[in-house]
Simulated scan of single mutants.
Amino acid sequence: MDARFAGIAEVTETPSVAVVVDVMRAFTVAAWAFGRGAERIVLAESLDEALTLKAANPDWVALKDGPPAPGFDTVNSPGLLRSSNLKGRTVVQKTTAGTVGALAVKEAPLVLCASFAVAEATARLLRTRGSESVTFVVTGEGGQADEDLACAQYIARRAAGAGADAAEYLRRAGESRAAAELAEGVRLGVHPDDVALCLELDRFPFAMVAAMEDSLMVLSARPQP
């Protein structure tokens, strides 16, 4: 498998397969949302779009980065979301990096959203598909976020059928700037367990596939046996 690692701005052509990685915290949160029963996740282009969708669908659950804000039900924190009952619900998610990265490759035939929480399931789907070329979109810090790059590199090795010691990749993620900012309270809308939850490997047995439905990009969970 030919794996390419690129920041959002570096993806200038539509890839055949895109794996969009946001470990801390968008796609760890998305995984937890599905784990708590969500039926689907709509990836919003903007905060205004998220609020418009929420207003038109009051039973949907809207979440965003940062502190709580009027119109939103919760924030982008796995520690806060894990106690929610989302059975059968639609979640609207808008974040600074993860949702932006997914929408940047929305024309790709296959778009997967990933974090350590769904790493093996994501790699398994790629292996099953037999993808020859995969672009891993490293969403944080202009493509330099080590937690996202480490996760992307780990998934790439597993997708290629190569053995990989997860401990080293998780160590890099745990020592990243994002992890430090979450632990030190630099970022808002944080639960004390967020970093640990973002570093929990293979918590869920599904990959997360994003596809356009009408004018919306919708994320769904695809179980991997």
Score class of each variant (00 low, 15 high):
D73W: 07
V20R: 05
V91Y: 02
A166K: 08
V137G: 11
R157A: 14
P192S: 04
A44F: 05
L219W: 03
R40I: 09
T52S: 15
D214V: 11
Y169N: 03
T135H: 04
P68N: 11
A104N: 05
K87Q: 13
A56R: 13
L125N: 04
A164Q: 04
L197M: 15
L86C: 08
P15K: 02
S215H: 14
G174N: 05
V17K: 03
K106C: 14
D48R: 14
I41H: 01
V138F: 05
A56S: 13
Y169I: 02
N85K: 10
S176L: 11
K87T: 15
G185A: 09
F206T: 11
A178Q: 13
F72K: 07
L126E: 02
A97L: 11
A30W: 03
R89Y: 02
F136K: 07
L43D: 01
A152L: 13
A173R: 05
T74F: 15
D214R: 14
S77Y: 07
F206L: 06
L149Y: 09
A221S: 14
T90I: 09
L86Y: 05
L53Q: 02
S115Q: 03
E184C: 12
E107R: 14
T139G: 10
A178T: 07
E184Y: 06
A121C: 09
S220W: 00
R127I: 09
R40F: 07
G174D: 03
G88W: 08
A26C: 12
V21Y: 01
S133R: 15
A159W: 07
L110G: 06
A56I: 03
R129H: 03
R36A: 14
G98T: 07
S131M: 00
Q93G: 00
M24F: 14
L199Y: 04
G142E: 12
A62Y: 03
K106F: 08
G79N: 06
G130H: 05
V100Y: 01
R36H: 05
A31S: 15
A221R: 07
Y154T: 01
A33E: 01
S16N: 09
V209I: 14
M208N: 05
G163S: 11
L110A: 07
R124F: 00
K87L: 11
P70A: 15
E132G: 15
L43E: 00
D48L: 11
C113V: 08
V20Y: 04
R129Q: 10
L110R: 03
V100H: 10
D202S: 08
L112D: 00
R82P: 00
Y154E: 05
E13Y: 04
A62T: 00
R171E: 09
S46N: 06
A55K: 10
K54W: 11
